[in-house]
Write a protein that binds this DNA or RNA. Sequence first.
DNA 1: CTACCTCGAGCTCA
DNA 2: CTCGAGGTAG
Length: 675
Amino acid sequence: MTREQARIEIERLSALLHHHNYRYYSLDDPQISDQEYDHLLRQLQALEDQFPDLKTEDSPSQRVGAAPLSAFAEAQHLQPMLSLDNAFSDGEVEDFDRRIRERLNRRDPVAYVCEPKLDGVAVSLLYRNGCLERGATRGDGRSGENITANVRTIAAIPLRLQGDAIPTAVEVRGEIYMPRTGFEQFNDDARARGEKTFVNPRNAAAGSLRQLDSKITAARPLSIFAYSVGYTEGWGDMPASHLDMLARLKAWGLPVNPLIRVANTLDECFEFYESIASLRDTLEYDIDGIVYKVNDLTLQERLGFVARAPRWAIARKFPAQEMTTTLLDVEFQVGRTGAVTPVARLEPVFVGGVTVSNASLHNRDEIERLGVYIGDRVIVRRAGDVIPQIVRVVEEERSTHVRPIIFPEHCPVCGSPVEKSGSEAIMRCSGGLVCAAQRKEAIKHFASRKAMDIDGLGDKLVEQLVDAGLVASVADLYQLDKSRVASLERMADKSAENLLAAIAASKNTTLPRFLYALGIREVGEATAQGLAVHFGSLEALASASEDALQDVEDVGPVVAYFVREFFDASDNLAIIDALRRAGIHWPEMAKPDAASQPLKGQTWVLTGTLETMGRAEAKDKLVALGAKVSGSVSANTHTVVAGPGAGSKLTKAEALGIRVFDETAFLSFLKEQKQ
DNA sequence: CTACCTCGAGCTCA
DNA sequence: CTCGAGGTAG
């Protein structure tokens, strides 16, 4: 066969395979058998092997996985991936609908698209000019992990969108899942080989996507349903409704859930919920509820967003699955602030896809409310998807052997009296740093990532260090010597060296981190940042009065009181002193003065995508220079920074005669400011 | 809270 | 091989 003949044949086979992929995954209506499909695929692979230079990036043969990665890169979403508000009853859906109609000032019913809510892993697929360029996990909504190589191995995900009228760029959002039959097949095979199995399809999907070696992912039965789009560019004619958009996704070759319907009234929404609930067990995938979305996209735009969720959508959750188990015992844990928390030890029970063996009982009031005794049969569920909760006691099954839960009057760790503080429901150990539990928790907090970030100093090691008497306070960390550390279990020379190096590295820090690390009550990351910026130095903060403290944004009487109390305690001052003498230091906080804030009073707007930095990074840089960064262009806007793909904001800025920087101009501007 | 993946290092045994 | 730590997801 000549090269030219091969080229034509490869093209023919590729088109054929693309077509059958579409029939199979998007339309769920295959025209050929799996064997015939495999046969075509093998023919293509054989030809590509013979003429490797004819192999294309989006060839249907390219689903076998690429070379392993050493780590996942970060992937910025061009438009954030939001979460959804939840509704747990029809009433809450009615409230949702009422809010929407009030906001839109309309009496008529609003049409909603109803979708089964898959319990899988959310992903964003970026297609540029129809080609799959990147796949990313949700992450914090702003940026996630780049899992392109893994995503490319999923047969249901088109490597190239089909049809015309494809936007030049589009982020397709969907849920990757492992079909139930595939999951069971995989587990059966794994068992037969003596390998470990997955507990549920969701974890199987998530675990498969987290493989650095995409060849492993390629061997996992994964699929996807697409349900919306994020960022788009060069769309041509926009869809008018959500349903229209789903139809386009389907036409492009992406699988869309066939059960999706439009409901024209609330009653139809409820009917949909009921019908899906009754189908639930027969579906090939796990679902945990229904999503209702306003169908009309103009209405969606008018409704907009609150915090991290759209106003125009809500997830109606199915009731949490409940199971009965036995309360074996109650232990009392002492936290960093001395809070004594009762924790239920349960006979392990499989509920909502995981094995639950612990559940917090929160406080004494909760125990009383439940009227629970040790030895009782109790009903457990996973509230809000994650946190296990004891719902109630099965009193009919109470045996004569139960015993009451006695809330301790003395700390189970240090023996100090346990006190009720003010109107709080919580009880606290009064031992302070005398209490080994509080000391351990304080050290764990100090070492944690967002605090001093001491690598390798985890829970177990802190326990060991404190129990061995090597460390009593955070200051002692900086006096450790290698031979003593190496005497601990599972700590040989190498580990000890690494630990000491990590501790030494933590000396170089920042004031906000240090403040947060101190573990002052009610002072979290954000408050620590606020205090540091406002006062500029530890000395100024430590000597500030409660009144002066309340001048800081978001600091009220409560926080001010705890900060003052902390710096009034001589123990704390001694520890801070020891830490500073050990060499902990931070750069001076730049006093926000006119010189360092040349953009004070200016409002900047970012639009499009910058190639050399993320949007958040650009924003940080501008804020640091004193600018306010806003989302929309108005007459008050000082400058617009427009990356490639800028849309209406750019047009508006030009219309208003506002200065516009492209990326190059923006970068050189930043450079000028730096000096 | 639980499950999963990945890594480095220690322990165990040949 | 096992353990602990660090990270991710829902």
